[in-house]
Amino acid sequence: MNFQLNGKQVELPEVVDSVEKLLTHYHLQSRIAVVEVNKEIVRKEEYETKKLSNGDVVEIIHFVGGG
């Protein structure tokens, strides 16, 4: 699987084909995060069912310190 993930091209095993599996791959399941695929926000309930395909643009977003 080839994605553009947070601005970087990444090549991941073929089994990483859903948002859920992508988060697990990076050990992010328990983190406070928001996922966007091709500029569309993926709701948490859809993590398992939201399939990823080659060429998808994925953003994993979180909250950082700011004023």
């Binding site: 993930l5 947070n6 601005g7 970087k8 990076y26 050990h27 992010l28 983190r31 406070i32 995060a33 953003e59 994993i60 977003i61 979180h62 909250f63 950082v64 310190g65 700011g66 004023g67």
Partner: peptide, 30 residues
């Protein structure tokens, strides 16, 4: 208040302030 940014997933996980907060005590203003 907080800012919204890309998670730095390609490096060793950094501690995140928000994740250490008791979120029942604070209202978040991103």
């Amino acid at each position: 208040t907080f800012a919204v940014r890309r998670m730095n997933i390609f490096e060793e996980s950094q501690p995140n302030f928000l994740e250490q907060l008791d979120l029942n005590k604070y209202t978040l203003l991103p």
